[in-house]
Amino acid sequence: MSDRRLTPATDRVILSSAAADADGRRVTDGEPARIGVVLAELLAAPDGKRDRQLVFGADVTVVERRDGWAFVQASRDGYCGWVATSDLTDGQARITHRVSAPETHIYPAPDMKTREAGWLPMNARLTVDEVQGRFARLATGGWVPVQAISDRFATDPVATAESLLGTPYLWGGNSRHGIDCSGLMQAALFACGMSCPGDADLQKAAFEPVEQAERGDLLFWPGHVAMACGDGRMIHATAWQMRVIHEDIASAIARIDAAGEGPFRGARRPVGAALEM
């Protein structure tokens, strides 16, 4: 049985890339679109439960539109689900930068003393039209501090994950305002230009196992994932403390086993296809 999270099809329409499983559904090539809001909720069904979130500037393919909802497939990780059609834009301007800080404000003018007009999360994808002093003007409107953006990927997933220490735990979350275990791994790897699936089980299946965990390797339990920091500690978003924390790996293995949520499933090294900005 196909995994609904990775199957670009509704009960009525299927993307041409999966046409072999059409089974009477209308086949479509889909339409390109881009997330035009700070965070779009990616839902299992229209107005249903949250599976994940998509950040500003994420590219998607729209498979079907229905009653104010759009069924989409995310370009970066192939995750499928429903978003509000109001969250989409057809803008396809070339992406030049990404938000490299945990989050940043958008200002109506290149002046930090003006009242902010909004915010953007880490990994939001941006088109910068010009730079004026310490601010960059976005093609979509507003100005962001140049210190918070980059035209390059980061190089250290652990340091990137650690910049999100203290972030509140949120099931299916993908931002500084709330993140879960697999969302933290994906955010850290995306920031370093590394492809990464959206959920822990998909991450475990995507990466190769290693005998000895090194810095940046992922550590797995049933339904949970963390990242090794290389000093006997790991970083993870945990419902145990409801935030992103450091924890001693050996202590975590013992604690999770004692809670009946084990066993430890080993380490895997995240090596995958490189992303485009």
Results as ranks from 00 to 15, higher is better:
Asp180Trp: 04
Arg268Ser: 08
Ser16Gln: 15
Gln203Arg: 09
Gly216Ala: 08
Asp59Ala: 15
Tyr169Leu: 07
Val13Lys: 03
Leu39Tyr: 00
Phe56Pro: 00
Leu165Asp: 13
Leu42Cys: 09
Gly232Ser: 12
Thr155Ser: 13
Pro32Ala: 15
Leu88Asp: 02
Gly141Pro: 02
Arg98Trp: 04
Arg5Leu: 13
Ala250Phe: 06
Ala40Gln: 02
Asp201Thr: 03
Ala40His: 04
Asp67Pro: 00
Thr89Arg: 06
Pro121Gly: 10
Ala250Thr: 13
Leu126Cys: 07
Ala117Asn: 01
Gly48Arg: 08
Asp257Cys: 08
Glu103Leu: 07
Ala22Asp: 10
Trp119Ser: 11
Asp87Ala: 15
Arg268Pro: 02
Val55Thr: 12
Ala274Trp: 03
Gly198Asn: 11
Leu218Gly: 01
Ser150Ile: 07
Ala267Leu: 04
Asp67Val: 02
Trp221Ile: 07
Glu130Leu: 14
Thr167Tyr: 06
His97Val: 11
Arg65Tyr: 06
Asp77Ser: 13
Phe264Met: 09
Pro32Phe: 12
His177Ile: 12
Gln203Leu: 07
Ala267Met: 07
Ser195Met: 07
Ala109Gln: 04
Ala44Arg: 10
Gly141Arg: 08
Asp90Met: 11
Gly262Asn: 10
Glu208His: 08
Thr114Tyr: 00
Arg255Tyr: 12
Gly198Arg: 15
Cys196Asn: 04
Leu39Thr: 07
Ser175Val: 06
Phe264Asp: 07
